[in-house]
Design a protein around this nucleic acid. Structure first.
Lengths: 242, 242
DNA sequence: TCGCTCAACTGGTATAGACCAGCTTGACGA
DNA sequence: TCGTCAAGCTGGTCTATACCAGTTGAGCGA
C-alpha cells in the first residue's frame, strides 16, 4: 500500500539494511523461497555486526517478507495464501486453485472429555465426550499451520475411524450428510508458543495468527470447533458479507 | 487456550524470565496498563543483562501481553477489543459498550485523484476525484489504530465539509441516506512502518494488523474504502456467517 | 552402492559494555 | 502561580565476542 519515504542516512543502520534487502525482494533479484546469505556474511557485507543484521532480518520477518527455517537460514516469503474462513472449501482445493501444492499430516486423534473452556464455546456440557484431531498443513513443502479440531461424536459417530489426511469437509458431507450453517469465526494476531511452534518447526515467539471457527449444522447442532495456528506471513484473510 | 508445559530450567533464560512475568500478569499482581520496572532494573532482578531482558519483554509483546510506549516504558496490555468489521457499529459505540473510553483525532482530509491501486479496489477510473480522510483512534487514551478512508465524492457530495471526529457511519446514514450493502473485508498481520508507526506513536516494526474494507450501497455504487492499521494486541476480530 | 560419521556450517542464546534521543520531573525564576 | 529549563531517567541502537545446538554435506568404510 504505502512505502516508507525515508532513504536518509539519518535512519538507524538496521533499517537501512532492511531497506536494501527489501528493495532486492521487490525488484525480484531475491525470488520467493530463495535462501539469503548467512547472518555472518550479511553482517560483513553491510559492515556491521551480527546483532544488527539480525535486527534488520527480524524487521523483515515481522513485515512478512522473510521467514526462517530453524537453524537452516532465512528465506524470502512466498505470496500470502488468500484464505476465506467463511467458506467451506477444502484446504487442498483452494491451495491448489492458487497454484500451490498442499499437504496434510495428521498429528493425532484423541478421544477426550469436554473442558470448561470447550463447554463455553460449544454449548456442550463439561465431561461430554469429544474427539480431538490435530493436523499440520503445508504449502509447497513449508508447514504454515497446525490445527486442533474438536469433533462432536454425538453428531459424528465413529468419526475417529476415518482417514484425516483428506478433506474433513468432504468427509462430513459424504459420510454424515452434514451441511454446515451458522459459523462463528474469531481471530487475533499473537505469537506462536509450544507446542504449536515446535509442531510447525519455528522458534517460540514467531508471529502467528490464531483463528477459531465454531460450526453448527442446519438444526443448530454443534458439529466441530476448529482452532488454527497460522504463520502470520502465510495468509491473507478475506470475508465477503451481505 | 493452551499453556506451555515447560518449567524446566533447561529452557532458555529469556523464556524463563518471560514465564515469571507472564504468571505475574495472569495472577493479577501486574494489572492492565501497569508500568513495569525499567529494563535495567529487570535485568538486575533476574541476574542477567539488558539484552536478555529485552528478549523476554519482546516475546511478551509479540504474544500481546505487554506493549511499550516510546521511551516511556513497558506496560501490561489491556484486554483485546472485540471488533466485528462486518457490522456497521460506530467505533465509539462498540468501544463504549465494552466499558472502554474511545477517542478520535482527524489527521487530515485531502481531495485527490484515484490511483491505479485504488481503481482496482473500487472500480472507479484512474484520475477520478476521491477524498482521503485520515484518522487516529484511541482506547482509554492509548492510540490503537490509524485509518485511511477513501470517500467517493460522486456518491457523497461535499463530504469534506463535515466534522469527522464523530461517527462517519452515522454521518453517511443521516446526511446521505446511505445504506451499506456488499462489503469486502481483507486482513493480514504485518509490521507497522512509517507513517503509520509514528502516527500511532510506536517503534517501526511493531506488530500490527492491516484491515481493509470496501463498502457499496444497495445499488452497488462504491461508497468508501477503509484501510485500518491496528496494533496487533488491541483487538480480536469476530465474524458471524450464515 | 549404500549408510554412517564427523567437521563445518547455520542460527539461537548470552555477556558486557557504550552512546543517543526523547520523556519526566523537580527546582528555579519570573 | 505558572512557565522554563536542566538533570536524570527511559528505551533505542550498536559494537564485539563467546559458546551452544541443530543441519548439512563431504568423505570414508562396509
Amino acid at each position: 500500500m504505502q512505502e516508507r519515504e525515508c532513504g536518509e542516512s539519518a535512519a538507524p543502520l538496521y533499517l537501512r539494511v532492511r531497506d536494501q534487502l527489501a528493495s532486492q525482494i521487490e525488484e525480484g533479484s531475491l525470488a520467493p523461497n530463495t535462501r539469503l546469505p548467512s547472518e555472518r556474511i550479511l553482517a560483513e557485507e553491510y559492515g556491521t555486526t551480527r546483532v544488527t543484521a539480525r535486527l534488520a532480518l527480524a524487521q523483515l520477518e515481522r513485515e512478512g517478507r522473510l521467514f526462517r527455517s530453524n537453524r537452516r537460514g532465512w528465506f524470502v516469503s512466498p505470496p500470502r495464501l488468500i484464505y476465506k474462513p467463511a467458506h467451506d472449501y477444502s484446504f487442498s482445493d483452494y491451495v491448489t486453485a492458487q497454484g500451490r501444492a498442499p499437504e496434510t499430516d495428521t498429528l493425532g486423534v484423541t478421544p477426550m472429555e469436554v473442558s470448561p473452556w470447550l463447554a463455553a464455546k460449544t454449548g456442550l456440557s463439561v465431561g461430554d465426550p469429544i474427539v480431538l484431531l490435530r493436523r499440520r498443513r503445508l504449502i509447497d513443502g513449508r508447514p504454515v499451520l497446525v490445527e486442533n479440531i474438536y469433533l462432536n461424536p454425538k453428531r459424528l459417530p465413529n468419526i475417529e475411524t476415518y482417514d484425516f489426511n483428506r478433506s474433513l469437509w468432504k468427509l462430513l458431507r459424504e459420510k454424515y450428510d452434514v451441511e454446515l450453517r451458522q459459523k462463528r469465526i474469531e481471530m487475533y494476531p499473537t505469537a506462536l508458543v509450544d507446542p504449536q511452534a515446535s509442531d510447525i518447526g519455528v522458534t517460540v515467539g514467531t508471529a502467528g495468527l490464531y483463528v477459531t471457527r465454531c460450526s453448527r449444522d442446519a438444526d443448530g447442532c454443534f458439529v466441530e470447533l476448529d482452532e488454527e495456528f497460522w504463520l502470520h506471513d502465510a495468509l491473507s484473510i478475506q470475508v465477503d458479507v451481505d
